[in-house]
Computed example of a mutant assay.
Amino acid sequence: MMTEHAKKSDARRSLHQDSVLANTAILYYKEGLTQNEIALRLGVSRPTVINYLRLAREQNIVDIRINGASFAVSNTSRDLRAKFNLADVYIASLTPEGDPADVAYKAQINREVAQVGAMALHDVLQPGELVGIAWGETIYHLANEAPYRIIEDLTVCQLIGSMTTPLVSTAEGCAISLASRLGAECHTLHAPAILTSAKLAEALRGEPVISEQLERLKTIDRSIFSVGNCDSDTPIVQSAITSKEEFDWYREKGAVGVLCGRFIDRAGTHIEGPMDERMIGIDLSYLKDRANGLLVAGGPAKFDAITATLNGGYVSHLVTDEQTAQALLEI
């Protein structure tokens, strides 16, 4: 008779196999990699890749439909890698209906791009890495869509302090959720993202526990983040994380995006301003020094912010939608 432990072990093995098969299918059918390229990436033989693809079809993990647009997506991915000097680009083939300015339209893009980003995690993350994760609607969906699959000796860190808002899950919630799905150790950041005064923020940074956590963020191997735009409906304003006066000040200075709580201009340069001294979280200079970030973002509303983040040199891997990918090639 099979014990409860044996049943759980079998279930974990089944989840692991499904994740491997799905990841292999995405690389082959969606990203256009050859079987040899996939074998090198996964560290297996070409016959193993062939077997993975066969099992994916037999177990209905992949439903093959020949669509000419899929080949364009593959070419677009390769062209974007070359244009922005990226390690990889993952493109969600989605065609949402409605007004691009509509909340439901934006939410659909965020969710579908996040789903592709979740699948990309097991292609991007490596055993033993220290990974920082940011905050926001897209990152929340990514963390909760990530397949259950252990990555050995992985550590997940919260990149920015806690934020309480009914619009988006907490920053620590994103870190905890992702870590639990990857079997990783998790380090949250025990402080608010934004304080009422620079003096209070400075005092908290000096606390031993928080100081240690911030020092750890300087050594991350990889980061996972989205980027917000600088429209009036951006969560950083809707959640009262910044005042309208501060927000307008940053926009007057040329801000087009919000990256890990910091404002950036079209070149991706951090605009230092009234919020920075009151914030507790990673400094963008450390993201830029590593230049090893997974950017998960899409949609017309975020186009300028995505472009700025790519220009700033923070990104090694991009997950976006097909329309945004095509637009990026045209600039």
Rank of each mutant, 00 (worst) to 15 (best):
H5G: 10
D10W: 10
D10P: 00
T24W: 03
I26K: 06
K30W: 10
I38L: 08
G43C: 07
R46L: 01
R46M: 11
P47K: 11
V62F: 06
D63P: 00
I64P: 09
N67D: 14
N67P: 00
S74P: 00
N75C: 10
T76S: 08
D79G: 01
L80F: 04
L80N: 04
L80A: 08
N85F: 07
A87K: 14
D88S: 15
D88I: 01
S93W: 03
P96G: 04
V103T: 04
A107G: 01
N110F: 03
N110G: 12
V113T: 11
A114Q: 04
G117I: 03
L125M: 14
G128K: 06
G128P: 07
V131R: 07
I133T: 07
A134L: 00
G136L: 03
A143C: 13
Y148H: 12
L154V: 05
V156H: 10
C157I: 11
Q158S: 07
P166F: 09
L167P: 01
A171T: 14
L182W: 03
A184S: 08
H187C: 12
H190A: 14
H190C: 10
P192A: 12
L195N: 13
S197A: 12
V209T: 14
Q213P: 05
R216H: 10
S232M: 12
T234D: 11
Q238M: 13
A240V: 00
I241Q: 08
K244L: 15
E246V: 11
Y250Q: 06
Y250K: 08
R251S: 06
G257C: 07
L259H: 03
L259V: 01
R262F: 05
F263R: 03
I264D: 01
A267V: 00
A267C: 05
H270D: 05
M279L: 13
I280K: 06
I280Y: 09
L287E: 09
L287P: 10
D289C: 00
R290E: 04
A291E: 12
A291G: 06
A291C: 13
N292A: 14
N292H: 11
G293S: 06
V296D: 11
A297L: 01
K302R: 09
A308R: 00
Y314H: 11
L318P: 04
E322R: 14
